[in-house]
């Protein structure tokens, strides 16, 4: 376990180093003088001078990179040119909104994807399996911003049941909060559910052919117990890892979903920043999501070892 842990951490360090290089490198893509570009549309000389000094633009590239990394390690992700606030504060402010949206989306997708995957695997080769697999393919192919628009057309415009956009914090009114989030969470969860169904199905198909499942059946255990206790618990292990890999898709989806339903979250933050040419915010958000992704996959690998007794040595 300790060796695994050390080896896994040893992999994270160079990955984080390259992520930092990539994100720092983004700035170099800006055409012309970065200080002028970073200053946004106003091109205020005072702002340009401030940026030049703040990002040490007169220093050579390696020095600038080192200074930038030093800042990042100390929690300084730069400052929004537009709102003149630290990027980290902005992220901290928007994160709970996206977090809640993503959490509900994941819950919805687990409730749909896992049972659907189990049923498809158990009924392998039947019309039920075919139908579920097809539904998952639909889920993977439908652009979620279009699904969002269709749901708004149906539930907000036609039926007038749910609000089309906006966000109410749970502190203000939990009921309103859930009403505003249910459609976006379904839209976001749809893609995740489809992936979850495919992962569960293939993991279950593999496990159902194992000797211990045959043994459990031979013992005369009820089928439902064989499926849930003996097969599913083992199938869950790869599903956890694959779900962590889908986390990136969840964040990408959140950007679009928040745009469709005008939810003031993380995704809206990066899109608004792009249009305001608020590059520090763009960089900060990218850095933060990459870090979150790397850590999440680290913990998923850890969970893999903890859940799988065969790897626990």
């Amino acid at each position: 376990m300790t060796t695994f842990l050390l080896r896994r951490i040893a992999l994270i360090v160079p990955t984080l180093f390259f992520v930092s290089l990539l994100i720092f490198g983004l700035q170099q893509l800006l055409p012309g003088d970065p200080a002028t570009a970073l200053a946004g549309e106003d091109r205020d000389p005072a702002v340009i001078a401030f940026i030049r000094q703040k990002y040490h633009l007169d220093e050579p590239l390696p020095v600038r990179y080192a200074l930038w990394v030093k800042g990042v390690v100390q929690g300084d992700l730069g400052e929004s040119i537009r709102i003149r606030r630290p990027v980290l504060d902005l992220i901290a402010e928007k994160l709970p909104v996206t977090g809640e949206l993503a959490l509900i989306a994941v819950l919805i997708s687990l409730c749909i994807g896992i049972p659907a995957g189990i049923i498809a695997a158990v009924k392998n080769g039947t019309a039920i399996d075919y139908g579920t697999t097809m539904a998952a393919l639909w889920g993977l192919s439908i652009p979620n911003f279009w699904l969002g628009i269709l749901l708004i057309l149906l539930f907000s415009v036609e039926l007038e049941l749910l609000p089309a956009s906006g966000f109410v914090s749970p502190g203000e009114s939990l009921r309103q909060n859930l009403l505003t989030l249910i459609m976006p969470a379904f839209v976001l969860g749809n893609f995740f559910a489809a992936g979850m169904m495919r992962h569960t199905r293939s993991a279950m198909l593999q496990v159902l052919g194992m000797d211990y499942v045959r043994t459990a059946r031979a013992k005369g255990l009820p089928e439902i117990r064989v499926i849930l206790r003996h097969a599913f618990r083992n199938a869950l292990i790869p599903v956890v890892t694959l779900a962590a890999l889908d986390f990136g898709a969840l964040l990408s989806g959140a950007v679009l979903t928040e745009q469709v339903f005008t939810i003031p979250g993380f995704g809206k933050l990066i899109v608004d920043a792009v249009f305001n040419r608020d590059y520090a915010v763009v960089q900060g958000v990218v850095l933060f999501t990459a870090f979150a992704y790397i850590m999440l996959n680290f913990f998923a690998d850890l969970a893999y070892v903890v859940l799988n007794p065969r790897l626990r040595t």
């Binding site: 990955t15 290089l21 990066i270 992704y293 996959n297």
Partner: peptide, 16 residues
């Protein structure tokens, strides 16, 4: 490192 940055977020950043 490249795979760690979510697909659309990296594409948005590059496009930006």
């Amino acid at each position: 490192a490249m795979l760690a940055i979510p697909f659309l977020i990296l594409a948005i950043a590059l496009a930006a």
